[in-house]
Structures are given as C-alpha cells and as structure tokens.
Design a binder for these strands. Sequence first.
DNA 1: CTTGGTAGG
DNA 2: CCTATCAAG
Lengths: 274, 274
Amino acid sequence: MTRPVTVSTINVNGIRAAIKQRSPENLGMLPWFKETAADVVCLQETRADDAQLAEALAPVLADGWHLASAEPSMKGRNGVAVLSRDPIDEFRIGCGAEEFATHGRYLEADTAGVTVASVYFPTGEAETDRQREKERFMAAVAARMAALLQRSVVDGHESVLCGDWNIAHTENDIKNWKGNVKKAGFLPQERQWLTEVLGTGWVDVVRQAHPDVAGPYAWWSWRGKAFDNDAGWRIDYHLATPGLAARATSVLTERPAAYALRWSDHCPVTVHYA
Amino acid sequence: MTRPVTVSTINVNGIRAAIKQRSPENLGMLPWFKETAADVVCLQETRADDAQLAEALAPVLADGWHLASAEPSMKGRNGVAVLSRDPIDEFRIGCGAEEFATHGRYLEADTAGVTVASVYFPTGEAETDRQREKERFMAAVAARMAALLQRSVVDGHESVLCGDWNIAHTENDIKNWKGNVKKAGFLPQERQWLTEVLGTGWVDVVRQAHPDVAGPYAWWSWRGKAFDNDAGWRIDYHLATPGLAARATSVLTERPAAYALRWSDHCPVTVHYA
DNA sequence: CTTGGTAGG
DNA sequence: CCTATCAAG
C-alpha cells in the first residue's frame, strides 16, 4: 500500500524553452531528467498544449516516463503536468471549480500508491480583478484539499499537492519581505489563507525540514542580479497529508550553481517519502 | 562637381538584430562597417525609430559616419536610413506621396556630390489590398524618379536610388522563376513597371555589369536550404541616372561565405562610381 | 529579463 | 525561419 516515492516539482516557465540547449555549458532540462532521483515530477507553466508538451518531452517519454497533462485553453499560458516512472492509474483535471476547469492549473495523478497534484496558482495583482480571480482559485483549491485530507483520515490514502502557489507564507519565505507587503504573493490575506490551510492538518514539507531559516528559495526573478544575490521567494511547495509528510526523509531545493546554468526562473524541489 | 563615390545598399532586416553578435564566428554587421570600401551606405528595414537606430549605430557614428533616417510610424516595421562618411548636406523624407510620408520607406540624402536614396518597397501580396498599396508606392516612386532624371538632364546633378524593390525584373533575377509567376515580387505588372522605369533612362547598374547571367542574387529566405542552394532573388537594386551609371567601375554583390555568417536575409550590394 | 503568440517578411 | 511587438510573469 504505502511504498517509497520521490516527488519533484518545478515550474518550467515554458517547457519548450526549458528543454532547449542554451549554450555549450547549459544543456537545458533534459540532463536533469537523466540525473534526478525523482519517481514523480510535477511540472507547472508548461505553456504548451498536449501535443506540444508530448513533443517537447519525447526524449523523456522514450525513457519510459508516463505523462498526464492539463492543457490550457489559452495558448502559451499556464499548463500543468505530472510525469511518473510508474504507470499513472488515473488522473483528474481541475479541482472541481468550473471557472478553472480548462485553465491548465490543477491536475491530480494517482501513481506509486499516492495522489500527486501539480498546481499552478494565478500570479495575482493587488487590488485588481486578477487578485480576485486568484482568491477564487485559492478557495477552490482549499475545498478540494479538505476532501483529500478527509480521505487520508478515512482510508489512509495519502496525497501531496506540489506546485507554484505564487504565495510566500512567512517572512522567512521571501528575501525582501518588507518591500513586498503590499504586493501580490505576500499579501496578508494570502498568507493568512495558507496559515488556515496548514491549520487543517496539511504539512508544508520543505518548511518542516527547514524550520526557522530564511529560504530555501526556489524562485528568482530573471531581472537584475536577483539570482546572484539569492533575492528569491519560496513559493513552490509540497503540501502533504500528515501521514505522507511524516515519511519525508530527504528534502532538496535544487538551486542552480550559476545563473548561466538556469533553464527556468524556478528550480526543482524534490522530496523523498520513505 | 563629380567625384568618385562608393555606394552600398543593404536591407538589414532589423538593425538591432543585424548589429548583434550571433556566435564567436559571426560578430554581426559592425565588422562589415570597419571593412567596407563604401562611402555611402543605404539601409532598409531598420525596424527601429530614430532613437533606437542611433543607439544601435553608435559604434559606427563614433567612427565619424553621418546619419540621416526616415523612421516608420508603425513600431518595428520598415525604416530606411543613409550613412555617409561625408557630411549629408540635406535629406528629404518621402517621395512626395502623402500616403507613404511616415512609412519609413523613402529617404533622399545629398552627399558626396550626388543624391542617394534609400528605398524600401512594400512586399505586396497578390490579389489583396497589400498588392494595391505596393502598386501605389510604385507609381509614387516612378513620379519622383521622373523628376530626378529630368534634373540630371537639366543641371547634371546625378542620383542613384538604392534599396529593396521587392520586385525581381527578369527570369535571370530569381532562381525559381517558374514557381513564382503568380507571387508578389514577380508579377507581370511589377516586372513591366520596372521595364518602363528603365525605359525612361534609369540604369540597373548591377545588371549592366552582369548581363545575361542568372543572378547575382542578394536575398535568400531564411527558410530551409534556400541560401545553401543559392535559391535567391535579385530584388536589391542600384538604379542610377545614366551619367552616374556610366561611372560604375566596380559592382559587388557581397554574398556571405556561409549561412552561419549571415546577419541579414539580404546581403550588401556595393558599387564604385569613379 | 524571459516566455510564447502574433503579424510580417 | 527570422524580426519586432505584446501581454504576462
């Protein structure tokens, strides 16, 4: 029933750009797939429809990975996917909210004995309709999370939601928190919402492994020297049901060694559940 | 009064892209400016406003070249310019037609004792409004050419119109002419119009130097193996008044040595007028 | 600063 | 296939 599984999540910021070789030194994302210990990989912001995604990932699929994806109805935007070394027994697109059903933001895959979701939250924009849309998405995800948590209690089936929340939870989750208290991604109501979700029992697996430290960040703006200064945000999460979170024995935020080696503005966050 | 001058014309297909270093081997257009024998250079499709153009050409201007330009009213489209080692005594934007005054398609510069125009004809599209626009531009340029030719007769002041005509005149001016008889750029009425212009006395200087041969082509599509197969078009012309055309002693179409060394889909066409 | 879509060539 | 633009991140 329960078996070990390593799950990774990464916002690729365009799968086609991520896969592409950038320089003689930076061969893009494909070598990462060869080297990773992950059994399950959650992708966000593939910015590709299903056909484009399968084409970009062809070398990975040729290595035996299985793919489930939720393509966006808007071309070149959003898009989430789950890759698994094990077969994907079943997958579900959307978290139940009609509004977001075709937005390519939520995908659950049952694989390796657990449910793994790849989730991409809207960026939001303070005091605009885009922020209200983000908050509707937050509510929809919270409702789905309540059901998944309940199931873990009832029949022991565990889940983990991986992805780009576009919300930094605490002052430890963002380098320059003082400059961002009125910015989407660090608004009080967003942080409070995450506090409430965690209060229901869901566990922030990375923070559980690294309590009371700044970071580890997994997103840095492309602009200026944000990466070199490690002026990042921790907005990429593994939120796991308590039983699964208790099995996290290795938690790795894979910050690239150099700006020139990046193939996304995010980096992978990989957790081994024993 | 008349003095020797070397004039070059090149459609740069975006001055910012042309100037940029592309690889360790392909340093872009700047080395060409260092090496060219040209005294006057006509640019087409700069795809930049005056400020962007001056910024891109800053290293050239620092070497003492003088610049006149006709910026396009539509961002990222068209744009023509003339660079001269001699001062530019006067320049005139547009060929007299109100419709095209701000399109960045026609610029005359008086320099080095002659009038040099940089001209960029519309691409056209058979049987559409875009073709009718091209033909209105053709008529406007022909009217201006009649005036310039008349002046050369009256007071001996010579002119040359350089640029991308987007018209191949004869079967020798396009590799695959049979496949293009219904395509904009090789339509019967376009070819006939050029025949009529040349019938008034204007001279196609490159063809005068290379009669009865296929090419030399100065444009190759970026697509497929067009360049490697020399499947090109001769649509870049020097049309000179007869007195100036008679002084053409060297006529050079500067086809790049390899695809990887290109910095535009066109190549320079350079003529020395003794 | 980077992405992908787009119109244009 | 390549150029600039654009909205978005």
